[in-house]
Design a protein around this nucleic acid. Structure first.
Length: 485
DNA sequence: CTGGGGATGGGGCCC
DNA sequence: AGGGCCCCATCCCCA
């Protein structure tokens, strides 16, 4: 028995020794691996640092070159630099259609309304733009003189003219609507201000964009933007990522928050706008209004004044009396409580250097965006008929676009119109994944696939899918065509 | 470079 | 009220 006990204790001691040895071995292995791992990490960090330095040097170089070039240009051309910038982008129009339209990231409101030319250019990120806020003006009379555009005269430096103050939902304090005393007459005490707060990924885009500022994007599956220049002018990496998987139009592999207008996420193929998950996504991060089913009462804003001040965020001065009167707002306090949580139409650039490195002429994305913005503005200006924000049409147009103040006769029209700004394209082609803002546009598009050409020329054998093209073609026969182009 | 066709965007009007 | 159609402007591509 005693032998047995001794034997057991010996075995136990041997086991213990073995176990200790094994543990020691394991620890040694782990330590070795850890050391190797750390070595690798430090190597990687070194490489990272070196690359960063290289990058900085390159950026400095390019910036210097551009600065030199700018100085030369300024000597040659005494125009304001902001004009030159726009000209530069206007000249870059070609190529935009490669992007299958609709990639309107930079939407500057129509000229007739609140933003002046040197005001910040607005960026609308499609990922958060399904909001269908619009402004209902109480009456035609109120619409006319009631909507004022007051502007501050500050910040004339074009280098700073695109400063943004849009607060991001993350980190940056929300802009506080403050009436600038020097530019704004004393407001009635009954007025309340509704501050446009970007509750969406539409974080302020600054040149010195720090990742922290944009970390809110992460919630949307959007990695923080590395550098704002990319955001501004579209590096291949960041801008205009078409969200269709496998879509050749995608500018980069990064399905990130590209500050493009395309709605993120895989869109369903088909026409079902109701079940479009896009809306769901919007609900998640764009507007709690949707998810709460309180759309109606929060979408209509009776506006007495719309003020846009130099660097200040858009401020809606809402006459409280209107709110009290109901006007589809439901519970007034409910309305007042909410800070118009939507994608901000005021996503603007902080462009410290308008001739920055990213404004490379080779950047077709930036071209597209600015070109389309310019075209849009041009078109808005050119279209006199009903194009005015609040035109005294026979049909009362009481519903204003939240973005450009354009007036429409019914909310649905506003909703459709606002897709211009938001980039929302609910209608997808089942054959090619192209998306359209309007159903009829999709329908028309599908003739491309069906080959249907219902319009035939009476003068020749030509057939056309669109009446407008036939009409254009007919000018060839009448001899008008050549002068048009 | 130019002309012409294909195609999209956007707004107005009509049913 | 809402959908569809029409129209215009514009861009892109190609010969």
């Amino acid at each position: 028995m005693a032998d047995c006990m001794v034997f057991h204790t010996q075995i136990a001691s041997i086991m213990e020794v073995l176990a200790n040895a094994a543990v020691a071995e394991i620890c040694k292995l782990v330590d070795d691996d850890y050391a190797v791992f750390r070595l690798e990490i430090s190597e990687s960090q070194k490489q990272n640092r070196a690359l960063r330095k290289k990058l900085q040097i390159q950026e400095l170089k390019v910036a210097r070159e551009r600065a030199d070039r700018t100085m030369r240009e300024r000597v040659l051309d005494s125009r304001p630099s902001s004009v030159k910038i726009l000209d530069q982008f206007r000249g870059m129009g070609r190529g935009g259609r490669h992007l299958t339209g609709g990639h309107r990231s930079f939407v500057k409101p129509a000229g007739h309304n609140t933003w002046r030319d040197d005001q910040p250019i607005t960026v609308h990120e499609g990922s958060g733009t399904s909001t269908q806020h619009f402004i209902m003006i109480e009456s035609a009379e109120a619409a006319g003189p009631g909507v004022k555009q007051e502007r501050s005269e500050g910040g004339e430096d074009p280098r700073h003219s695109r400063d943004i103050q849009t607060g991001s939902a993350t980190g940056v304090a929300p802009p506080v609507a403050t009436a600038e005393p020097n530019t704004t007459p004393a407001q009635p005490t009954t007025q309340c201000s509704i501050t446009e707060v970007s509750g969406t990924p539409n974080a302020a885009l600054k040149s010195e964009t720090d990742t922290e500022t944009l970390t809110g994007l992460g919630q949307l599956g959007c990695p923080p933007a590395p550098r704002s220049e990319n955001l501004l002018y579209g590096s291949p990496r960041m801008v205009l990522s078409h969200q269709d998987s496998g879509d050749s139009l995608q500018a980069g592999n990064d399905q990130s928050c590209s500050y493009a207008t395309e709605i993120p996420g895989d869109m369903p193929v088909g026409l079902d706008t109701q079940t479009n998950p896009m809306r769901g996504e919007m609900n998640l991060y764009s507007s709690s209004v949707y998810s709460e089913g309180r759309l109606e009462k929060k979408e209509v804003i009776v506006v007495d004044e719309v003020k846009v001040e130099g660097d200040a965020p858009l401020t809606w001065n809402v006459d409280e009396t209107h709110l009290r009167e109901g006007h589809s707002l439901g519970n007034t306090s409910d309305f007042l409580d909410y800070n118009v949580v939507t994608h901000s139409p005021l996503l603007t650039f902080r462009d410290r250097d308008p001739v920055s490195t990213s404004m490379a002429p080779s950047d077709s994305h930036g071209r597209v965006l600015f070109d389309q913005v310019l075209n849009s503005n041009k078109r808005n200006r050119a279209k006199g008929k009903g194009g005015g924000a609040i035109s005294g049409n026979s049909k009362e147009k009481r519903f204003l676009c939240m973005f450009c103040n354009k007036a429409f006769s019914c909310p649905q029209k506003v909703e459709i119109h606002q897709r211009v700004h938001t980039g929302e394209k609910p209608f997808s082609c089942t054959q090619c994944h192209m998306r359209f803002a309007q159903a009829c546009t999709l329908k028309r598009h599908q003739r491309v696939h069906t080959g249907e050409k219902p319009y035939s020329c009476t003068q020749c054998h030509m057939r056309f899918a669109q009446a407008g093209n036939l009409k254009m073609h007919l000018k060839v026969h009448t001899g008008e065509r050549s002068s048009d182009i």
